[in-house]
Amino acid sequence: MRKRSGRATAVLAVLVTAVLSVAGCDATGGDSPAPRGTEAKQGKPSPRPTPTWDRSPSSVAAVGDSITRGFDACSVLSDCPEASWATGSREDVDSLAVRLLGRTQAAERSWNYARTGALMADVAGQMAQAVTRKPQLVAVMAGANDACRATTSAMTSVADFRTQFEDAMSTLRTALPKAQVYVASVPDLKRLWSEGRSNPMGKAVWKLGICPSMLDDADALDAAATLRRDTVQDRVEAYNEVLEEVCEKDRYCRFDGGAVYEYRFGTEQLSRWDWFHPSVNGQARLAEIAYRTVTAKKA
């Protein structure tokens, strides 16, 4: 009896060990959840995520309208691309390209495809030109001319503006899926009117056809004139919402957060010829905003 009891005890011990061994496997395998927290970290280390935004791109292309061409910054009714906030070479502007690349490289690795008078509808074509250079960063500032029409009814609709900006981004993405994009907000046109209307020379130039929807009859403060300017202002704000929303859907796009729109341009930042477009000083301020946005750790 004692021998048979001893054998039974031995067999029982083997069975218990086997059961415990199987239970131990089930605790960390099979259908059980994977280790978490500290236990997971003790296993194979996870690869570090690849950054999606390069704060020091090696080439810059610019698209947009008269502001990016430096219109009226250096002389009356003339482009002055050397004073452009995006790609200009003037030391007193210290453009985005110069700040990012250095003066020598900026001269060789930056390109300005903006055009005075351009609408958002024209930006896709400018993008098509820009992609041939394969820039690592494309700077976009457009939309002011879409609001600066002969009448408020002629302004680009918000829906069309969205479609046109999406088309421009699609043109870029088809050719350069990972090119980075900096998007500047449309300036506060009503503030520019408010600042510039105190200058007789500026108002004389306005009569030549600069932003008539906002600047026509500059001294009028009646209900109709106020409504007209407020309508333009509302459209600009709607455009900026579109720019932000479309940009947010693209992992390689950064909107300035409304910084250009919110910047309080004073007379020192306005052209001394038309008191509406940025002066050299104003171009330098735009370059600061762009550089700050592009080099920020987070959008």
Rank of each mutant, 00 (worst) to 15 (best):
L77S: 12
G125T: 05
V294Y: 10
T28E: 11
R254S: 04
V260P: 02
A27D: 09
S5T: 12
V205S: 03
E262F: 03
G202D: 04
L96D: 02
C247H: 11
N199L: 04
R285W: 00
Q129Y: 01
T104D: 15
L100E: 01
K203R: 15
K178C: 00
R197W: 03
Q283C: 05
D250E: 12
L15G: 15
G125R: 05
L192S: 05
Y252S: 13
Y113P: 03
W53G: 10
K134N: 12
D188G: 07
Q129H: 05
K44N: 07
L227G: 05
A114I: 01
L215S: 07
Y252T: 12
A8N: 11
N281A: 13
A142P: 00
T17E: 02
L243A: 06
N112I: 06
V246A: 13
R173I: 03
W111K: 03
K297Y: 06
T231I: 03
T87E: 10
A224R: 01
D122E: 14
P278L: 09
D167M: 01
K297P: 07
L12V: 10
G70M: 02
D217M: 09
I67G: 04
G196Y: 04
A168H: 11
E244S: 12
A154E: 15
S32Y: 13
Q129F: 00
P33C: 07
R272W: 00
P45H: 02
V158S: 06
S110C: 05
I67K: 01
G88A: 07
R251L: 11
H277V: 06
A184E: 06
M201Q: 15
T9L: 15
A218L: 08
D250Y: 05
A86P: 04
L208P: 00
S84A: 12
K297D: 15
D167S: 04
R69T: 15
D216P: 00
W206V: 08
C148W: 02
A142D: 11
R197L: 04
A128L: 01
V16T: 12
